[in-house]
Design a protein around this nucleic acid. Structure first.
Length: 454
RNA sequence: GGUGGGUUGGCGGAGAGGUUACGCACCGGAUUGCAAAUCCGUGAAGACCGGUUCGAUUCCGGUACCCACCUCCA
């Protein structure tokens, strides 16, 4: 059995991964709040933890891994979107979930085992909040239910901060009904046409963090193996999840291993909605950047480091994939290379795995390359469609070959060179050898120009 | 102010206390009508200052700079 080592945010150490039950691994990743298209930053954890999912399935068996990623479909951002567009909330969340599936599928991410929606777990959330009140960790005030952070001595452990430090530099809005400024909302009242559910505290809706606690407990149990998400969720979201779950269930941990991916950057700055420098996965796909290329770029950088999205990286990834696709075309995948699995088992070192893939390519091991690349979701049979696009270049190739033959006899290559320039300008790679002529669409392929030449 | 992370060759980007990362680009060679592609090969690094060590880019401490979190965000 391959030993998997993961950097655990909870212990701040890279440590061997030991499942609670090797026949029933349980993994939870925080999914999107569904009110808009997923941007590239949303895609990074999806792809990174998809690699984790694939690795765990490879090592422990396909049926041994349960992977849950939620949809948060109740949230004030969604309410705001509904208010500004006049559309029903359900329409917005349904449409966004459909987009999310389309876009993440395009990136080659496997669907998780379960994709629960928060609104299907309101009853579990209410039960959990009742439990917290009963045990003295939460209190009702002014129509709200709040978690009392002072009752949980480990609060701040995950993110390495103390309550007093946080309050010293606090920028939190202090509501008068809070016993402590850091107390956070479990339930809040809904007035008017805001979405609401009946509860012991009146008609209301859940706070931000409780849905993950309720859904993970329901689907994975009170304590599970891995909880994953973006580093920006470490505080307060994950800290609050831990507080809720551990206090409600009386457990020592919520999840044994916590994984956090670093942010996506653009021009060295975090991609974020507030900075307005974000772009969606769909934007990239619409620009003609294939999902497989986006995936490759995301995996070029280790998940615990910031990743800068650049056009150069996309071009490099595309060139590599073209090469590998050509090498493995029609080849039956063999078994994944131990070097690739070893790299992935070492804290999901996808950059190291890609290096190992280059080694396989250089060695000409097409079957091994294909199987190993598929370990990280590349070179899959369903993802190569982007290479097949474009018109048939055979007529042009025949014409070009004829010109070349004539030139060889006359020693006048000017007509050949002129046509070659045209082909190159249209983004076609021109390969001439003693054996003949090959025309291959390249990165800057211009179908319109080709049409004009035909 | 508090907390966490980072700084590697022209660029991207890993591992390892001592032996070539890897990719792209560059340069040289093979090949080619010229190229492209391909193959072979060379060169190039570890922010700064100390410490530990026979030996550190790798461990420890400090400095500088960068990024993130503390407010919705993956």
């Amino acid at each position: 059995m391959v030993e998997i080592r993961l950097t655990n945010s909870r212990t701040r150490k890279k440590e061997p991964f030991a499942p609670i039950d090797a026949a029933d691994l349980r993994v939870y990743a925080c999914g999107p709040t569904v009110y808009d298209r997923a941007h590239l930053g949303n895609a990074r954890p999806v792809v990174v933890f998809d690699v984790l999912f694939r690795l765990l399935r490879q090592v422990y068996g396909e049926d041994a891994v349960t992977y849950v990623r939620n949809f948060t479909d109740v949230d004030d951002k969604i309410n705001a979107r509904a208010a500004e567009t006049g559309r029903p909330i359900r329409d917005i969340t349904e449409e966004t979930i459909g987009w999310y599936h389309d876009d993440m599928d395009a990136l080659g991410a496997l669907r998780p085992t379960h994709e629960p929606r928060a609104t299907d777990y309101i009853a579990q959330m209410i039960a959990m909040i009742e439990e917290l009140i009963e045990k003295g960790f939460a209190y009702e005030a002014d129509g709200h239910v709040l978690f009392e952070v002072r009752k949980f001595p480990d609060y701040g452990q995950l993110s390495g901060r103390s309550l007093d430090d946080m309050i010293a530099g606090a920028r939190v809005e202090v509501a008068p009904y809070k016993r402590d400024p850091m107390d956070f909302v479990l339930w809040k009242p809904s007035e008017g046409d805001l979405p609401g559910w009946n509860s012991p505290w009146g008609r209301g809706r859940p706070g931000w963090h409780i849905e993950c606690s309720a859904m993970s407990a329901e689907l994975l149990g009170d304590v599970f193996d891995i909880h994953a998400g973006g580093i920006d969720l470490q505080f307060p979201h994950h800290e609050n999840e831990i507080a809720q779950s551990r206090c409600a269930h009386g457990t020592r941990v919520m999840a044994n291993t916590w994984l956090h991916n670093e942010m996506v950057q653009v021009e060295g700055k975090k991609m974020s909605k507030s900075l307005g420098n974000f772009f969606t996965v769909r934007d990239l796909l619409d620009q003609g950047i294939p999902g497989e290329v986006i995936r490759f770029v995301l995996l070029m950088t280790h998940y615990r480091k910031p990743m800068d999205w650049t056009a150069e990286k996309a071009a490099e990834a595309e060139a590599t994939l073209r090469k590998w696709r050509a090498l493995t075309d029609g080849v039956e995948a063999d078994t994944p290379s131990p070097a690739v699995i070893a790299a992935l088992a070492d804290d999901l070192n996808t950059a190291g795995a890609i290096a190992a893939l280059h080694d396989l390519a250089r060695a000409g091991d097409a079957a091994g390359l294909k199987a190993s690349a598929q370990m990280i979701g590349l070179l899959g049979d369903g993802m190569g469609g982007w290479l097949a696009e474009g018109p048939d270049l055979t007529p042009l190739a025949v014409r070009f070959a004829a010109l070349r033959e004539a030139a060889k006899a006359s020693k006048d290559f000017s007509a050949v060179d002129a046509m070659k320039q045209q082909l190159l300008a249209a983004g076609i790679e021109v390969r001439m050898s003693a054996a003949g002529v090959e025309l291959i669409p390249g990165p800057g392929f211009d179908a319109v120009a080709v049409e004009a030449m035909s």
